[in-house]
Design a protein around this nucleic acid. Structure first.
Lengths: 199, 199
DNA sequence: TCCGAACCGTAACGTTCGGTACGGTAGCTC
DNA sequence: GAGCTACCGTACCGAACGTTACGGTTCGGA
């Protein structure tokens, strides 16, 4: 997809993005990456192309661990859900995630939805794909009860994320360590099971 | 706070903001409002001042209906919660809300958190203030059980909003009518009570 | 050793846009 | 009517920045 040298450039762009947000200039990227602007334009077309490539590059780095589906009982289901909650929260509170979401949201405001689609696809939707199969396995095993796995996923998302993401995006500085993440994921799982568990 | 003429100008700015996002120029605002740029700078200082005033102006227009707290029983509590859910969803899915949230998020990415604070204060936090008192009244009346009303509010927020807001911000076009809002608010209330109801 | 491709660094171009200056006008006061 | 204030419309200035152009360097292959 990208040559090693291109990956160096994209890494530099990502760093600058985290540091300065959307205000990064082509000149600053070229300087940081020790490459010429001509090369940037040759490789990525224009500024939007560079940003798109950067987002794709970052997205490709995120590799979701797969979760076992065999031997699903109440305990392992709960553990899986908690794991998903932790993954989701860890991703969302990360500086890179906040930065790229801000970038994509800014682009969406300029009628350019390309970045938004990429971020959506590789953030929430990637989690969703994995989680849905677990949820459906849980239903299959008579551990959960719901009509639409889509709705169930979105409820889980809401219980985990709550207002964290929007507050981070709006600039609030929330310190979120491993322990808070684990606690929130556990609480959200508890609440999710209180709603969807076969009771 | 603002003279009628100033309100005309801010309305024009808000319209342009919804139409073109953050790309609106001082010239376009002046033209749309039929005023001179000199006046804009005299009244609002600079571009950021104009944007801030626009956000404040819009925020001041949103007047939350108060909810009765007397005679709180299970039915009226449920009705209040549903009403809050509908209010929250209606606000969030509105074009103006999406636009101003995008604007504030962009500013937060540029280390200028002023707009983010205003949006936060007049959006989620305004709802929270009202909802918290209802929640605490519910606890007082032995209808709800929770330790932290803050956590309870945030859970309700998550159950109502789910992934709607982030998807809208990222540019997804979701058609959301009265009926969907009512249904989602009802479902969220149901789920909230399943978690926090004294059972 | 020569050639060409790729790339670096930098200079330059053109546009956009925030911000300022200025002349003209309507309305109000004395 | 003179003078003042507030405002409109427009022209202008300067900086930032995306984009292009160009000379110089490195390096692999014939």
């Amino acid at each position: 997809m990208f040559t090693p040298r291109q990956q160096q450039v994209l890494t530099a762009a990502l760093d600058l993005l985290v540091e300065q947000g959307d205000r990064l200039t082509m000149t600053s990227v070229a300087r940081r990456a020790s490459c010429s602007k001509e090369t940037l334009y040759k490789w990525f077309g224009d500024r939007d192309g560079l940003l798109t490539a950067t987002v794709q590059f970052q997205a490709a780095k995120v590799r979701m661990p797969q979760v076992d589906r065999w031997r699903l009982d109440a305990a392992s289901l709960r553990a899986s859900l908690e794991q998903f909650g932790r993954d989701l929260l860890s991703t969302i509170v990360g500086e890179v995630s906040v930065t790229l979401n801000r970038l994509a949201i800014g682009h969406a405001g300029a009628e350019k939805h390309g970045l938004g689609a990429i971020v959506l696809e590789n953030g929430p939707l990637a989690i969703r794909r994995r989680l849905k199969s677990v949820l459906e396995a849980g239903r299959e095993a008579r551990l959960l009860r719901f009509d639409s796995s889509e709705d169930a996923y979105r409820t889980f998302f809401g219980l985990v994320v709550r207002d964290i993401q929007i507050r981070l995006l709006l600039g609030e500085t929330i310190t979120f360590g491993e322990s808070e993440i684990a606690r929130d994921a556990a609480t959200a799982t508890e609440q999710f099971l209180a709603v969807y568990d076969v009771s």
